[in-house]
Design a protein around this nucleic acid. Structure first.
Lengths: 358, 358
DNA sequence: TGCAGATGATTAATCGTTTAACCGGTAACG
DNA sequence: CGTTACCGGTTAAACGATTAATCATCTGCA
């Protein structure tokens, strides 16, 4: 029923003061007597005043919006991360504008440009592996891997891998299969490097799915049954998605998890807790990562623009704590290593079942 | 090396014309001679002119941004939907601001308010089940279920379910278990209702996981082994996540999919194609849904504000095509129904294996 | 020749907020 | 007593784009 959207002028009129005073009172910046400030706040609230972002943005040059660029929105890790970032940004009064870069580098640059044109004050980028973030004329936080140059903050994938390795080693696993997608990814190298380190002197072999699928076709068998026959007692997958693929391939072949083989994943994605057996995995602390990334960007925004920043080159900000520890989530997919003798028995049985099915 | 960000005035100066003419030329609205317009566009491009969203927004009252409200960003369906919506919006020159409503209604209202305060021109809402979208003073498109009142556009969940039901029926399944989460969801009722219809006069039983877990605890067994023993030959899950849960529970119990039991899901989520056996599922056409939703909102924005709109009540827009067909994705998790006799045999074998494992 | 109408461009107001500069008055201080 | 400093505010100028109103020409027609 109120006339229109109330603006500064209306509340100024209704109190007989100037808009400048109202602005000062509400922002707490200028010099306003406490009582008057209080009255102003009161009527502002009463009138349901909502500042116009456009007006403010025009005057201050700040939009109050951050961009979030993702190499591939459809990445299953995205929901949690986006949620954490939106949350953290909202707490600081910022909005999050999303941009998808469909996985390819050109589109990523375009996406960044679009965000800049929209006037974002800063950006969070989760880049395509091996991609260099470029062309941003605003503070940029990069979430990739601690071993990526220019990275702002990330989970400590290496230590996370080490934790899984240690866990498997403590269960007595002496022959482990590593399941990765691509050797080109820093994250993957960190993770599997950590696993290797944690496993100590256990026998380790690695399978790279991208390479395998290039030959055998997409969705091909990972050859896990053969691996188990070779003596593998544990499989450490690069991600929960791969772990899931492994788990079902094993189960389909009649190999029991974790009795015959243990399986571990990474990321604690949504399904890790609902499958049977529940997936033992290594969880990223996305909330902390988001907080740190947002804080770093906001700090860079608040800082008076340095010479480099004004040049328009991408200036990736750095965070005080670039590595965030990961957390081991123990579920039912890992168990004690099977002894050789028992394994041989079970294996033959399983092969029978598997052949019947396939 | 250019002085600063070029604005309208700079390009106007450099050609000796007024800013109004430049604005007209670039927007194609006013009356500008073709040659001059061309020269203006040329120098604009040369100077790398980028219009200030803030200035434009202030003057026109339009921000060029749409809000996307999700009941729960961490919903695994979100990535695809967000991607499609961002894409569709970007094509129309709009940005997407995200807001998470953590699943609860109060937060959803808050999220909507935050978006309004940020000056969005319209919103797309994927509401919490049973939630009424309210308090928006801008066009709102709701993506929920065709049978939800006030819905704008959605996948035709019922027909999708019917498709799955027909598929299972054609494979000879006469005893099917329906796996749902909650009876309170329109989407779920539509889906399972469709399945029932498609199955014709087959024997159908339903299990509601929420109810089950309230008693037996989260992550409890779904009792599928017993169901199979009862004679169930197919399981139709409300979503791929539930289907995955079912699939692994069955496999863990030594029941072969699809030889012993067929399993179907909904949504074609990322893992449906990587598990073994691949999940037969019903895919939503998120791209079309996003296109329709965005188009409906944009049309409402373009339309001169009606009386109701200005009242500030939520005015959910309607789309020309509210139901979007779903697409059956055939993979390996469904197969011919087992005959009773064969089933009984196999079942006993499987039970043995299952008991050994459990 | 004179006038209406079309054409092409300019003028100036406006959107709502912020903020540097200013101003009259009073109190403190040398 | 004269100067300075502060206090609580106000004025007015931006910020950058859009657009209604206006104006100067030129064309066509009676």
């Amino acid at each position: 029923m109120s006339r229109q959207k109330p603006k500064l002028a209306r509340i100024a009129d209704s109190l007989g003061v100037s808009t400048a005073t109202v602005s000062n009172a509400l922002s707490g910046k200028g010099r306003v007597s406490p009582e008057l400030a209080e009255r102003i706040r009161a009527t502002a609230a009463e009138l349901g005043y909502v500042p116009s972002v456009a007006g403010r943005a025009l005057r201050t040059g700040r939009s109050g919006v951050l961009g979030l660029v993702l190499a591939d929105i459809s990445n299953p890790l995205f929901p949690k991360l986006a949620q954490a970032i939106e949350n953290s940004a909202a707490k600081a009064g910022y909005g999050i504008l999303i941009a998808d870069s469909h996985g390819d580098v050109a589109a990523q640059t375009q996406a960044i440009e679009r965000l800049i044109e929209r006037g974002v004050d800063g950006m969070i980028v989760v880049p395509r592996r091996g991609t260099w973030v470029t062309g941003a004329s605003c503070p940029v936080a990069v979430i990739d891997s601690p071993s990526t140059p220019g990275n702002t903050v990330a989970a400590d994938h290496w230590s996370g891998g080490q934790g899984l390795g240690l866990h498997l080693a403590s269960l007595g696993h002496k022959h482990v299969l590593l399941l990765g997608n691509s050797t080109a990814s820093n994250v993957q190298n960190d993770r599997l490097g950590g696993v290797r380190a944690g496993l100590g002197n256990a026998k380790v072999e690695a399978v790279w799915i991208e390479k395998l699928e290039a030959k055998a076709g997409q969705g091909c068998s990972l050859g896990l049954e053969a691996a188990v026959a070779r003596g593998v007692t544990a499989i450490a997958a690069i991600s929960d998605l791969v772990a899931l693929r492994a788990l079902t391939e094993l189960q389909r072949a009649g190999i029991a998890v974790p009795e015959d083989v243990s399986v571990t994943g990474f990321d604690d994605l949504i399904w890790s807790s609902v499958v049977t057996p529940g997936l033992t995995t290594m969880r990223m602390d996305v909330v902390t990562i988001a907080d740190i990334a947002i804080a770093a960007v906001l700090e860079a925004i608040a800082r008076p623009p340095s010479a480099e920043t004004r040049r328009g080159d991408g200036d990736t900000v750095i965070a005080s704590q670039p590595k965030v520890p990961m957390e081991l989530v123990l579920r039912q997919s890992t168990g004690p290593a099977k002894t050789s003798v028992f394994r041989k028995d079970s294996k033959s049985t399983n092969l029978t079942v598997g052949e019947r099915i396939q």
